[in-house]
Design a protein around this nucleic acid. Structure first.
Lengths: 268, 268
DNA sequence: GGATTGGTTCGGTAATTCCGAACATCGTTT
DNA sequence: AAACGATGTTCGGAATTACCGAACCAATCC
């Protein structure tokens, strides 16, 4: 049946999580050590050791002591769960809006988040009939100063963090068009802030053009950016601003779906 | 320092959760196997085995495959976290309202949840100067047909589940006043539904009087009940209805704090 | 007060898990 | 292009690790 070799599983870890599932079933009143041991079909001492481990990490909590001590799920799980739902929220929301965006523009769209001092792509929707395969691997770290998503985020971040990021990551030259001087970059960021979208004009890859805009969460903090990517020769100059507005609108759409207040997307 | 003997801990379980914390830090883009192994200071194969285990349970998810596969937190954690927050919510919300209730009435108040086919007490606030110590242990299972919290819940549950519960648990006689006949019980439940609160008049313990009312969550389902307990001779008949309304109001208060729609508490 | 249930501690055993190394695959760089 | 480096996956062996059973406390129930 399960061709998935048991060889590459850890027994005690599996038991720990079966135990957690049992506690989840049990509800607020929790379960006793003996109940758990019986339910899992293991010795009391084994269950005890696992519970102590989980207790130390706050993944289970105990009510009462000594006799008839009861165990229930701990706060630490609430924290982990919260991380998951916020991540899922960004991914899922982004995916649906990105599909819209590529359908409207015919271009590959991507969403990246900030992983100081780099940007990292967490979702991508390929153009339907892309002439070139952009090998944009998910999870790949990219420089901020030479990408549309990167500059969109930089323009939305506080000044101090921008300085920190540029200080640690620098401004390496990727192509002849890469902005390698801090003053020039700050000037560019100012116009990004004004327009509401950023442009990468062959600054990261020769012949590649990108337009990106920042995404904000419910606390009005910048959590990432969305962009479309195409070949420079497919994009006449008169289309750029129209494209920029489209991307900006879709970014705002993601932000509102994340519960961002309307002010976050407006001009500073 | 930590006098907590490492002897009663499970190494691999501890590692698994350190790994999860690391993934939580990592964010939506996740981490690679090698990164994790380096970070935890363990071999790749060990980290691999743990990851496979977590993957099987849905506690981590993987993006991409083969090369540069990335791991991030899985949906199962969202589920566990959700269970925790709803439990915490009920407990915490209940405690504050219960303190109000005992202050106003001078009686011991308790909150129980349904653990078919029994009721189980999950929180209690003792009366300030209680003449008698009610040994109402938390987590203790009680019959539904002879307690105020039990009858309050029964009146709020669908007919089919009521039948199931009574069929499996029966109607054992606890005192001379215990309702042991199904028709009589149903008649009582009807009046409970009408009044909005249930009465236990020495049906569980001789000389003990209880008044209880049901609690509803944000999905308008009955999740428990709250009650006050006192000695029969301290409660003249004319106080009963006033007390019932007080308990009912506080139950409604808990329900609204849990996000229950206003209709749930109204008469059926 | 005895009997029963539940939690905690301990010692020995062997099963479990850990590691290192080798293989397969892919991306990068020379 | 081809070699290199890095990554995920598989395997065998060694011993650490975690499991169990039993005994020891503590508290409840009869």
């Amino acid at each position: 049946m399960t061709a998935t070799e048991d060889r590459y599983r850890v027994q005690s870890v599996e038991r720990a999580f079966v135990l957690l599932e049992a506690l989840a079933e049990a509800g607020p009143e929790g379960m006793t050590l003996s109940d758990l041991a019986r339910l899992l079909g293991i010795s009391k001492s084994s269950a005890y050791a696992i519970l102590q481990t989980l207790l130390a990490g706050g993944f289970v909590a105990d009510s009462g002591s000594g006799m008839s001590r009861r165990y229930r799920l701990g706060m630490a799980l609430a924290r982990l769960g919260d991380v998951v739902v916020s991540q899922i929220a960004l991914r899922d929301v982004a995916m649906t809006v990105m599909r819209d965006l590529t359908r409207e523009t015919g271009l590959t769209s991507r969403v990246a988040v900030l992983d100081e001092p780099y940007a990292v792509v967490i979702a991508r929707v390929d153009a339907p009939h892309s002439t070139v395969r952009f090998t944009a691997n998910l999870g790949k770290r990219e420089h901020l100063h030479c990408s549309a998503v990167g500059k969109a985020m930089l323009a939305a971040l506080p000044e101090t963090t921008v300085h920190e990021i540029l200080a640690t990551a620098g401004l390496p030259e990727k192509t002849a068009y890469t902005i390698t001087e801090a003053p020039a970059l700050h000037a560019d960021l100012a116009s990004v802030e004004q327009r509401g979208y950023a442009i990468d004009d062959e600054e990261d890859n020769e012949g590649v053009f990108c337009v990106g805009s920042a995404i904000f969460d419910h606390t009005a903090r910048c959590v990432g950016a969305v962009s479309v990517t195409g070949l420079k020769l497919d994009l006449p100059a008169w289309r750029v601003d129209q494209l920029g507005q489209t991307v900006r609108d879709h970014a705002a759409q993601i932000s509102t779906l994340l519960g961002a207040p309307a002010t976050a997307e407006a001009a500073v």
